[in-house]
Write a protein that binds this DNA or RNA. Structure first.
Lengths: 213, 213, 213, 213
DNA sequence: CATGAATGAGGTTTCATTCAT
DNA sequence: CATGAATGAAACCTCATTCAT
């Protein structure tokens, strides 16, 4: 993407995350991007197109990463990786992920369907890991669907408060969330050194997936 | 409040929850309440005043309930009750709670400060229970502040999907969330029959607190 | 008029004078009068009716007084009395007279015609005195119509700044204006003691005319 | 200024003068300027900004002209020039000057302060000439401050009735006002041919000062 | 006598978007 | 590639007024 195009996109991510889609005006976007509002339209379709593009890109990357991480491994390894992915992504890409999580309602029906389909595929990775783990006896959960919803909210919530200046390094945060998630699922975690290895692998993937931006 | 005033308030809760504050127009409100947009202004100040009133009322009730439930009891009982309260309120009052959780950013600085102060008092009840439980050895958490944030997100998330028509009765849902929360905190739960008693007590309080509406 | 009716009228005079007719809202009037805006309508017709009533009353009294003062006397005495009348009225009834002078343009055509007719009758008293004085050689003016307009503006202007707390007593002010007016007309004034007598007589008339209010 | 910008400004001057600031709607302005009401906002800030700009420009020019005319000369010459300036400006620029004289009350406090400061500087030129003339014995006035106020009202009043179609040429009108003003001040005027010269010089300045518009 | 409730019309200003240059 | 100019629609809110109680 052209550098100016990126500026537009970045401006949109910042403002949509901060003020919401309907709370952000075209002029706000233009000002933040350092352009006139007319010029904006060289780099985007409508305001909603911009939102859709942000959401599909972000969700698409999350899905790609999720699929790679769950291509093999036992349920415990898979859910651990998904939790790490979700937490790290929501921390490293706070703004994009907030837009994805909060602005679904601002989409028109057609666009919403597209985005929801992506999200469903992603969430299916979670549900599958949870269900399999319940079947194998690795997890002890009485309402697996509820567990999925609870875990997703819990892990995604980090985007509402995370800052890199906080007292706990991000790697440690991811470990804590992984522990909490396994607590939710009634599972025992792996030994610490394996857990650290897992987080580092996931972090590397997150960096790779978001690199081209 | 006058019946018409209630209709205005209810319309606002529905629409703010569904479309967001900035996504809801005065005409939408008027139409939903069955009034002309001019008449709306007999029952509210500005649109933001209406939002503030909804948020402070809702948060105020949650805080009152939380304070009552944590007036005594050991940390396990207190955190259990708070989880139940949060889950039940977010299920029974899906719309209000979504507005409270999502529209903080739509408030002007002054109003935001007021609302944030209320929320902080409420969240302090959680932090206090968690910290005490960690100190007594009832909980095993390495990052108590993170645990609080994670639990609040997890439990509040129910407002994003709950419907009374779902396959799991609300009482059971609350029990599941309590179990998951104790898993997050690395704690063992009480025997089932005591847990049911607790949920029923909390449900009664929720009903009472929200009655006058 | 009922005491409440007077309050309404007084409120209108104050606010119309201060903010102008279009700058004054019905609610402003109601608040100033200590009534609800609905109750206002027991004491007036439309907002414009209220304006018309204020203007015709005020102009009517000025006209009555002017006619009395010019019923006899030579041109110098008549113009002196008119100047005194105009100045004293605009000082003692600053607000009414400002409304009369400034809000003609806010009247609808019909009402305007009525008010203009009154004003014309009043101004004719001035023109007549001036013209007669020119004919008798008492005044030396090359453009008598312009002189009339200039004098009326000059004398009425006192309503834009007069306050009873000023350093110069009102009686003195009236004398100064009379002197200036005669200067405008190229006429010599009467001896001081006669001038004072005249002002006092005019002041008494002003008090009488405005008494019933 | 762009031609369209001028049209907006001209429309505002006409309508504010005719109907008053509060009596003029944005749609009236747009219609008069031949624009949509949205387009109006490319050429102005708020409606009040437009008013402020009109007032400061107009007053600023009057002040500049006044300063030039009173840079030297004896009190009689200075006051004569000021009277001519005031009269000619109020005749040639009837609408602007009416807005300046009538709409001070429509300004918000901050803007009002700015405009009042300009007006005070302008009026100070008058007061200074009057006071000096009294000191030198050129004028005979017992209340110099009152004289200033009276003269300003008298001369500015021409904007309320002047039309170029009237029976008296503007140059003659200015002479008549100068004579009347000297009458107010108890002063004898210059011989006719000098007076005519003075008016012509002042008229040239007025034309020059208002040219760039 | 007084008012709360109600409203259609209109207030000023901003919206997202287009297009000629 | 960039923008100033333009606009219909809509934003939030207030207007003057009526009427049942």
């Amino acid at each position: 993407m052209s550098p100016t195009g990126s500026r537009v996109r970045d401006a949109a991510i910042e403002l949509f995350a901060e003020r919401g889609f309907h709370g952000t005006g075209i002029r706000d976007l233009a000002e933040r991007a350092g352009l006139s509002s007319a010029t904006l339209y060289h780099y985007m379709g409508t305001k909603e197109d911009l939102l859709v593009s942000i959401m599909t890109t972000s969700l698409g990357r999350l899905l790609t990463a999720g699929e790679r991480l769950t291509a093999d491994g036992d349920p415990l390894a898979r859910i651990t990786a998904l939790v790490e992915l979700h937490v790290l992504t929501h921390a490293v890409r706070r703004l994009e992920t907030r837009v994805v999580d909060d602005e679904m309602r601002s989409l028109s029906p057609d666009h919403r369907a597209t985005v929801v389909a992506l999200r469903d595929r992603y969430e299916h990775l979670w549900q599958d890991a949870i269900d399999t783990g319940c079947a194998t006896g690795a997890f002890h959960v009485r309402a697996p669907r509820v567990a999925r919803l609870a875990l997703l909210e819990m892990c995604g919530g980090i985007a509402r408060w995370y800052t890199p200046d906080g007292p706990i390094p991000l790697e440690q945060l991811a470990l804590r969330y992984a522990e909490m998630a396994l607590g939710v699922l009634g599972a025992a975690g792996p030994p610490p050194e394996l857990a650290v290895d897992s987080v580092r692998r996931t972090m590397a993937l997150v960096d790779e997936i978001w690199l081209p931006d």
